[in-house]
C-alpha cells in the first residue's frame, strides 16, 4: 500500500487514482455536522475558524471517549454526504481534502477536481481499528459538543481508499 504524508504535495495528490488503497500519516481535524455549522457561523462573521482551513484535512468523525492509555476511543468515519453542503466552500478556501465514508454530491466531486483535492474513504464501522492509527489527540474547539467537538489527530499509517481523486474520478461511479 502506498504511504502518504499529509498535507499531500501537489504531485502526490495528482498521482492518486480513485480505488487505490493508501496509508495516511499526518494531522487531521475531526469535524461533523454541528462543528461544520459553527465553523460556517464563524466564517460568515469574518471570525477565525478553530484551525486554518488552508491545507488542512478534515476527518468526518465523532470519536468515543478515550479509554485509559489510548489517544482516542473508537473513531471510524461518519457518513460524508451530510457534509455535502459544507465541503465545496471549504475546498475553495484551500482545504486539502476530507476523509469520511460513502459517496458525496456531484458538486463536491466537481469542486475536488477544480481545486485538485482528494476525498478519502475510511472503512465505516471500523472504530476500534482506526483508534490504533491515532497516535495523539487534542481538543481544539467546541468542547460542549462532546464527541462532535473538533479534535486534532496525529494519525500514522491510517488505512483509506481514494474515493474521489484530484481529477474528479469517483470510486462510486460505475458502468
Amino acid at each position: 500500500m502506498k504511504k502518504l504524508r499529509l498535507p499531500l504535495s501537489k504531485e502526490d495528490a495528482a498521482a492518486l487514482c480513485a480505488g487505490e488503497s493508501v496509508l495516511l500519516t499526518g494531522t487531521v481535524f475531526t469535524a461533523r455536522d454541528c462543528a461544520h455549522k459553527r465553523i460556517f457561523e464563524l466564517l460568515d462573521a469574518d471570525m477565525v475558524p478553530p484551525f486554518p482551513i488552508k491545507g488542512a484535512y478534515i476527518y468526518y468523525a465523532g470519536p468515543c471517549p478515550a479509554p485509559e492509555g489510548m489517544a482516542t476511543g473508537s473513531c471510524g468515519p461518519t457518513t460524508s454526504a451530510r457534509m455535502n453542503a459544507y465541503a465545496p466552500r471549504l475546498l475553495r478556501l484551500g482545504l486539502g481534502g476530507m476523509i469520511g465514508k460513502g459517496e458525496m454530491s456531484e458538486e463536491v466531486r466537481r469542486t475536488l477536481a477544480e481545486t485538485g483535492s482528494v476525498y478519502f474513504a475510511a472503512i465505516g464501522g471500523a472504530g476500534a481499528f482506526y483508534a490504533h492509527a491515532v497516535k495523539k489527540s487534542e481538543l481544539v474547539a467546541f468542547p460542549d459538543l462532546l464527541s462532535e467537538a473538533v479534535y486534532r489527530f496525529e494519525v500514522e499509517d491510517f488505512p483509506a481508499v481514494v474515493a474521489i481523486d484530484s481529477r474528479g474520478k469517483s470510486i462510486y461511479q460505475r458502468g
Binding site: 470519536p63 464501522g125 481499528f129
Partner: peptide, 18 residues
C-alpha cells in the same frame, strides 16, 4: 478491515463502532 476491527474491539474491550 471489518473483520480485523471486530477482533481488535473484543481484544481491547472498546466499541466495535464509534
Amino acid at each position: 478491515v471489518i473483520l480485523e476491527n471486530d477482533e481488535t474491539a473484543q481484544a481491547e474491550q472498546i466499541p466495535v463502532c464509534q
